[in-house]
Amino acid sequence: MNATKVETQELVVELDAVERPPEPARKNTWRRALKRDWRLYTFLIAPVIFLLIFRYLPMAGNVIAFRRFRPGSSIFGDEWVGLHYFEMFIGNEQFWNVFWNTAILGGLTLLICFPLPIVLALLLNELRSRRFKRVVQTISYLPHFLSIVIVAGIVFQLTSLDGTINQIVTAIGGDAIPFMQLPEWFRTIYVSSEVWQTVGWGTILYLAALTTIDGQLYEAARIDGANRWQQTWHITLPGIRPTMVVLLILNIGSFMAVGFEKVLLLQNPLIYSTGDVISTYLYRVGIQSAQFSYGTAIGLFEALIGLVLVLSANFVSRRLVGASLW
C-alpha cells in the first residue's frame, strides 16, 4: 500500500518537474491523468462498453413496464401507458397465486437451507480425524458443481414410479406415488433437492470462520468448567455470528428469486397450483406469450421486493446485532 503511494507521488513529482503548470492544477488533472495513464484507460474501453450495453441498457429497458411495446418497436417501446401493466397484474388472481407460491417456497427454502450448513459445519468441526473431515467435505461439495439440468434429471429419476423413492414406498407396503404430478409434493421435492445441492457447499464460509476463533477462549471456558455444549453455545456460535448475519441478509435478499431455472425444469402444468412462481410465470407470459411490457412490469415489481427485503434485513440486523453488509 505504502509503496503504491510512493510510486504515484514520484510520478507526479516527475511530471511537475517537466511541465510545472502555471494554471490551476485542477483544470489539468483529467488531461494529465489521461496523458500519463492512457494505456491503462484503454483497458477500460471494452469492459465499460460491455457494462453499458449488457447491464445498463436493459436497466433502462425496464421503462417498457410503463410503455406499450410492440414487436418491432424500439427497445424502449412506443407510447406511455402509465401504470396500466401494474394494474393488470395487481388485479390478476393468477398473479397472486404465484406470488404466494413464491413466498412460501422462498420461506421454506430459507428456513431449511439457511441453518443446515451451520449445523453441518459445527458437526464437521467436532471431527478429530482430518482425513474423515476431508472426505465428508469432498463428497458434500460435489453436487454444487452439477448443472441444474442434471439435478433436475436426478430428481425426476429418483421420484419416478420406478425410482428409488417409490421402491422404498412399495417395499413398506404403500402404493407408488406419481410425485411429480401431485401439487402437494412439489415443495417437499424442491426443498429437498435444494438441500442436497447446496448444504455441503454452504459450509465453506462457516468452516473458514470457525478457524478464526481464538483457541484461548476455549481454554478459558474449559478452566471455568464449561462443557462442550456450553463451549459451542457461548464461544463457537458467537464466533461465527458475523458470517451468519451476512449470509442471512444475502439469503433474505434473494428470497423471492427462488431458483428460477430449477423450478422451470421441475414444474409442469399439473402442479402449477404450488409449483408456479413469479419468475416462471413471468417467463411464460413475458417470453412465451410475448407480452413484453406486462412481463417487465412483473419483473420490476419482483426486483423491487428483493431490494426492499435486502435493505430492511440489513437495517434490522444493524440495529439488533450491529452487523451489516454496508
Binding site: P47, F54, R55, L57, P58, F69, I287, G299, V310
Partner: peptide, 17 residues
Amino acid sequence: AVFTMFFNGGLIPNYIL
C-alpha cells in the same frame, strides 16, 4: 460495476436487447 450487483435489467429487457 458494483451497482449492477444490486440492480439489473431483468429477464425481458435483456431478452429484447
